[in-house]
Computed example of a mutant assay.
Amino acid sequence: MTSAERREKLLALAQQCETTGRPDRNLDTEIYEALGFTVRRKPTLLAGPRTPPGGIYQQGALWKAIGKISAEIDVAVSVLRQKAPDWNWSLHSIVAEEQSFEALVAGSSGHGALASLALCAALLKAFAARGGKITES
């Protein structure tokens, strides 16, 4: 994948985070892939009760269940700290007719119906602004 294609993929995922109103396990998997994790998706034909939803990702020599990055702020913050430990970030609640959130990550802003989605959007945009270069985990 070229740098331009990677950047476009990051921006498309950021837009999806901003426009969706709810968490999505497929979105979780796509975000992990876009952030440079080695991912194995949940096989649809062989899925059982012990198969982690969404799939697994490699961290070092271990394989772990993909976190609910689009649903849980703790997971989004953990991935942000792992992939960009030196970046500044902030998260704000916007109270209007409908509550929404705004996040800033390294100068890139993201909005979302959930705090985790806003943080994911901002993180994805920040990496896209840097040409799509993702650090290895």
Rank of each mutant, 00 (worst) to 15 (best):
M1A: 15
T2E: 07
T2V: 02
A4S: 12
E5L: 15
E5G: 07
R6A: 13
R7V: 11
E8G: 06
K9G: 04
K9A: 08
L10N: 13
L10A: 06
L10K: 09
A12L: 04
A12S: 14
L13P: 14
A14L: 00
Q15V: 00
Q16C: 01
E18A: 08
E18F: 07
G21W: 09
R22N: 02
P23L: 02
P23D: 07
D24M: 04
R25D: 06
N26Y: 04
N26L: 08
L27N: 07
L27I: 08
D28Y: 06
D28Q: 10
T29E: 09
E30P: 02
E30R: 12
A34I: 01
A34N: 13
L35S: 08
G36A: 06
F37N: 11
T38C: 09
V39E: 14
V39H: 13
R40I: 10
R40C: 11
R41E: 15
K42G: 05
K42A: 14
L45K: 12
L45E: 14
L45A: 15
L46W: 13
A47S: 13
G48Q: 04
P49C: 00
R50V: 15
T51Q: 03
P52C: 04
P52R: 04
P53E: 10
G55E: 09
Y57I: 06
Y57G: 01
G60H: 06
G60L: 05
G60M: 07
A61Y: 06
W63P: 12
K64Y: 09
K64T: 03
A65K: 12
I66V: 15
G67I: 09
K68I: 02
I69R: 05
I69Q: 04
S70I: 03
A71E: 15
I73M: 12
I73K: 02
V75W: 02
A76I: 04
A76C: 07
A76P: 05
R81K: 15
K83N: 00
A84L: 12
P85W: 11
D86Q: 11
D86K: 03
D86M: 11
W87R: 03
N88S: 12
W89A: 01
I94N: 08
I94A: 03
V95S: 05
E98M: 08
E98G: 08
Q99P: 04
Q99I: 15
Q99G: 02
E102K: 10
E102H: 06
L104Q: 06
L104R: 04
V105N: 00
V105I: 13
A106E: 05
S108L: 01
S108V: 00
S108W: 01
S108M: 04
S108F: 02
S109P: 01
S109Y: 08
S109T: 09
S109A: 13
G110M: 07
G110V: 09
G112T: 12
L114P: 00
A115V: 00
A115L: 02
S116K: 03
L117S: 01
L117D: 05
L117C: 06
L119A: 07
L119F: 15
A121Q: 03
A122M: 10
L123F: 02
K125Y: 11
F127Q: 08
A128Q: 10
A128N: 10
A128D: 13
R130M: 05
R130F: 06
G131S: 01
G132K: 10
K133S: 04
K133V: 09
I134A: 08
I134Y: 10
I134C: 11
T135R: 11
